[in-house]
């Protein structure tokens, strides 16, 4: 047993594992990195939907004499829309909202004499990546995510034993770089 143990080339085994696990993690890393950037900037933009708004002034002087269906037709014709209508809602006596079949909405502001059209386009790929990143799928993905986290820990630790000589981990440059990986997060913790 000891003989067998000693016969293993640990340096080579570590390099091979680091290489193969690294290949395996490429897809995971890209998914988490891309959606991580998207979710990080959630205050500045919507990572799940592209939302465009257009507003038009309308002559709505006689609209209050119409029923809801007729008002909806007028609102749709303001933007040449033909989508089916899911439902409508009076927010208050001056604001009327119409929900269209594909998630778009029309909004009539009676005081401003304006109709706004909100066009919603799901960012399909990014939405799917975010869903994985934020673990909305739950279930089996929890185990895959844990496995990925474990593999990242292995990649980090095995990297210490990848290179010997002047670029090894005990050299000053390597120690500085490793220390930065600890001090930068610690600095932001200190600031918070």
């Amino acid at each position: 047993m000891i003989k067998w143990f000693k016969s293993i080339n640990w340096y080579r085994l570590n390099r091979n594992l680091h290489r193969d696990i690294g290949y395996f993690c490429i897809g995971f890393s890209i998914i988490f990195a891309v959606s991580g950037i998207a979710v990080n900037h959630i205050a500045d933009w919507n990572p799940n939907y592209a939302v465009e708004r257009q507003t038009k002034q309308v002559d709505d002087s006689d609209w209050l004499t119409l029923d809801d269906q007729q008002i909806i037709q007028r609102m749709q014709s303001s933007f040449d829309l033909t989508q089916a209508v899911k439902s409508s809602f009076w927010q208050n006596k001056n604001q009327f909202e119409v929900f269209l079949d594909d998630g778009d909405t029309l909004f009539w502001d009676r005081r401003q004499h304006q109709v706004s059209y909100q066009d919603i386009e799901p960012r399909v790929i990014l939405q799917a990546l975010n869903k994985l990143h934020l673990n909305e799928t739950r279930n089996a993905w929890v185990y895959f995510s844990d496995l990925f986290a474990g593999m990242l820990i292995f990649l980090a630790l095995s990297a210490l034993f990848m290179v010997k000589g002047k670029h090894g981990p005990a050299k000053p440059k390597s120690i500085v770089l490793m220390s930065l990986g600890v001090f930068i997060p610690a600095f932001f913790l200190f600031l918070s």
């Binding site: 799940n48 899911k86 269209l100 998630g103 909405t105 799901p122």
Partner: peptide
Amino acid sequence: DGEMVFPLTARGK
């Protein structure tokens, strides 16, 4: 946040 994520396209349903 993240416990349930309601889709924007659900409006009107």
